[in-house]
Design a protein around this nucleic acid. Structure first.
Lengths: 135, 135
DNA sequence: ATGAATGCAAAAACTTTGCATGACG
DNA sequence: CGTCATGCAAAGTTTTTGCATTCAT
């Protein structure tokens, strides 16, 4: 329980009940990728009384603090995942929607090169592969 | 002028004024990536009387017909671009929002390899680089 | 005590839909 | 002419914001 408190303090965030609970939801869920609504519902199910607006505010703060990453996958809403510190990209199964995380140094390096070619410093990138299981 | 008509007919779409005008907007604009709102405003500026809802409906039809691609870049709204047939990825300037298109065979090949590693056939992918102009 | 965080509700931004009218083939 | 497309306005979604209250330090 104190581990969350330290994470929050280190991020410069006051330790409040909503923030602790939301962080726990992100850590405990078997779903690594959750929408604000997902987290909100999970909190309600757990008997916590937190507003949806607060979930959005807290997730945005977490993102700015580098605790979580926000992804804009396909349709409309954002999903959030704990920032493990290790960068990775995503492979999404077109059949099941399952998300696999991977990391490939060659691809990372190539991206830097391409950005440089066009006169840019790479600050971020999003790579999502969509694949069908080989039969 | 008839080229648009043929494109529409080939896509199985009735040739209507809004559809022709929207297609022209996509072809003529120097902005290859435009939001529905962008196109709507451009039409109004051009004195065309088209509803925003129609712009959305037509763009969705164009997408389904393979005439345009829809992208969900960071920042809420969708942008559309004519489908040139040649696959490319995007480099977005974090300062100006400007979008640069690029294609890199090595990255394409690596993606195939990675998908295969995890037992998948690559069906599609989205790669977006975010870069800050080198000073 | 004091300033920040929260909850609620209202608003904002983006997109879709229902329905009566009008246009294409 | 029949049907499909359009415009308008209203409703849906997702996310943000204003404000009075509560909470952390």
């Amino acid at each position: 329980m104190t581990s969350e408190n330290h994470e929050l303090r280190n991020a410069g965030l006051k330790v409040t009940l909503p923030r602790v609970k939301i962080l726990q939801m992100l850590e405990q869920s078997d779903q690594r990728h959750q929408s604000a609504e997902d987290i909100y519902k999970a909190l309600l199910d757990a008997g916590e009384d937190v507003g949806l607006a607060t979930v959005y505010r807290v997730l945005t703060q977490f993102e700015q603090a580098g605790l979580v990453e926000r992804h804009n996958f396909d349709g409309g809403h954002s999903v959030f995942e704990l920032d493990s510190g290790e960068h990775h990209d995503h492979l999404v199964c077109t059949e099941t929607g399952k998300v696999i995380e991977f990391h490939n140094e060659s691809i990372e390096a190539l991206q830097e090169e391409i950005a440089a070619e066009y006169g840019f410093d790479l600050v971020d990138h999003k790579l999502v592969l969509y694949g069908r299981p080989k039969s």
